[in-house]
Design a protein around this nucleic acid. Structure first.
Lengths: 347, 347
DNA sequence: TTTTATTGTGCAAACATTTGCACAATAAAA
DNA sequence: TTTTATTGTGCAAATGTTTGCACAATAAAA
């Protein structure tokens, strides 16, 4: 004969219904071992019957814990980041966490604001790809100090005591270059991104190391550094490289846009791919399967990277008061994808 | 001489500091008109000095309101959706709302679970692109009934009393077709998506209407229906269309992948574009600027669509107890982007 | 001057849950 | 049997904010 107000069901209603105390209900719901199996069943059945669920806000309020993970990316409409976030969401939602997203737009100021907001309360943990502008890291240190688990992805920052998950750019680029060498290329160029950026520098280093390890000579003329690896820049780079007096027979590109450009430019010059020149890209963008010939590339497993980032973050969250995990740099493996723009390895 | 525990600052601490009551602090923070300008300044200064901020959880707990918007997309690593979400985030974060994302993976079951979770508490409002599987809409109706503002995007659902923002697929496709006609095409084919899907049907209808409005004849042979508009299917479609006894001089494609395929196939057949055949795509994928010749297309303004969705949702949230807004279908305008794959309009 | 309206502030309750502590009941050990 | 340990449950406090109501002080109206 209750007032049939449509207020949400609380733990107290359940308690009254079952002649138990709210504490008991609460403990059943958190699976407290002190509760007997009999009452657990009793309560759980009622919970199902009434479709009851805890008020997460009240719960967070009292326990000072949330189930929300803050993810801050430079922007989410970039293929790579959207894949990482997808990987994070899939893993985290499985464990009952929610993902709240923020875009720093690669602005240091904005990144600071976002982190302040996240510290303020709502985050059980934070996964972040630092903005390109970010040089100072006080805001990140503050997060760490305030004991909020933090995981970086994609862009490493030196001297920061936290977990980071990224790919092994050096190795991936080395592998790509090695692949060209294995197929018989003798003079291989590199179209790079901005060499002041950590990951592009490593890609360059990997390329160079593969050359010297295989007794091929590197010379400055083989390197074309672009500003932002755009398709347009790729065209310019390829054109320049095509005019070398000592002609090249392979190009390792730091992404698939420049690789696409190179492919199209050499086609226009009637230099056939891969017979006369092999071209390999990086990142496995959709375009690499559409350009003719399809472009060999390195898959960076962005989705998987998100998975891992979520995994180690949640580990930290849940172990927070137990053993302090030592922080580590996790290198996600990359895959060499061989398509038509590089010659096949002769067996 | 306080205990220097590192517990977060509360409204009470501020109150003590200033010899005021917590109520006053609270009212200053919510800009209550009953508070004098003098005390407002006093409090606000202190707030800045100490870097104080309300505990959003406690606040939500008491007020039963949150600042969190749930966004559920089929998947977030699809170009279109990631752009929409980016648009939502930009607009909403400006107004102090956070975005929590969920992926339905186009599964009806998962979608239902997600909505139940969102109803359970945390959402001030919900923006959703319904899964392809979704036929029954009880779960959506439940959200509406429970008075949580709801906005659909991209995929309309009939007979659902809520706001929806999408593009005018009919009109956009009409415009694309009209563009070909304006440049002199007389026999125009259409590569369509699955015609059982609302938006692809509308694109087809728009195409057909443009033909008849301009005294061009439509015949079944001009329509090639694909299953999922993949690049591969595009190749098959283009090949079939290239063999028509009565040759075509234009193709309207329902996306840019099939358009890319068509361009590449006709190039291979040495049928020059746009001289002998004009090809136009849909959605303005990155690839459309890379394929040679660059592909004319329809830009769907996904980012802007997210903006609008966020805008009308937040309107609803904040007007919740005031005037009941009537629900509307908002059609985001699309842009015809003319590139090299279609002839220029002769002036 | 008295009455009435207005302005600015404080009191205290309420929100739904979690958790330390207490305690009764039962089981195990002495 | 008495003592001690174990098991299962309840009591009540605490969490930080918001808000209806009360009330004092001042201003305006009578």
């Amino acid at each position: 004969m209750k007032k049939s107000d449509s207020r949400r069901l609380t733990i107290k209603d359940l308690a009254k219904e079952l002649n138990l105390s709210s504490s008991t209900i609460s403990r059943v719901l958190s699976n407290n071992p002190r509760i007997s199996e009999a009452t657990k069943k009793l309560v759980n059945d009622k919970v199902k019957e009434l479709g009851f669920s805890l008020d997460p806000i009240a719960s967070s309020f009292r326990s000072k814990k949330t189930k929300s993970i803050g993810v801050v990316a430079p922007r989410i409409d970039v293929d790579f980041h959207s894949k990482v976030i997808s990987g994070i969401e899939d893993y985290a939602s499985e464990l009952g966490y929610q993902i709240t997203i923020f875009q720093s737009k690669d602005s240091y100021i904005k990144e600071k604001e976002i982190l302040k907001l996240l510290e303020t309360s709502l985050a059980a943990g934070i996964i972040i790809c630092p903005s390109l502008e970010t040089q100072k890291v006080d805001h990140l240190k503050k997060v760490i100090k305030s004991n909020i688990p933090l995981v970086l992805y994609d862009r490493p920052i030196e001297n920061l005591d936290t977990n980071i998950v990224c790919i092994n750019d050096y190795q991936a680029s080395y592998d790509a270059t090695k692949h060209l060498i294995n197929t018989g290329c003798k003079r291989i160029a590199h179209i790079s991104g901005n060499l002041n950026v950590n990951i592009f520098n490593k890609r360059f280093e990997g390329y160079k190391a593969a050359l010297v390890d295989n007794d091929l000579e590197f010379e400055d003329a083989l390197l074309y550094q672009t500003h932002n690896l755009s398709y347009q820049e790729g065209l310019v780079a390829a054109e320049k490289l095509s005019k070398l007096k000592n002609p090249i027979d392979g190009i390792v590109c730091a992404n698939d846009y420049t690789a696409s450009a190179a492919v199209q430019l050499f086609k226009k010059l009637n230099i056939s791919i891969p017979e006369n020149i092999s071209i390999i890209g990086f990142s496995n963008y959709p375009i690499s399967t559409i350009i003719e010939p399809n472009i060999s590339t390195i898959d960076d497993n962005a989705y998987y990277m998100g998975n891992i980032a979520a995994k180690i973050l949640i580990q930290q969250i849940e172990d927070k008061f137990q053993k302090k995990i030592d922080h580590q740099e996790i290198l996600v493996k990359t895959d060499l994808i061989i398509r038509d723009s590089t010659k096949k390895v002769k067996k």
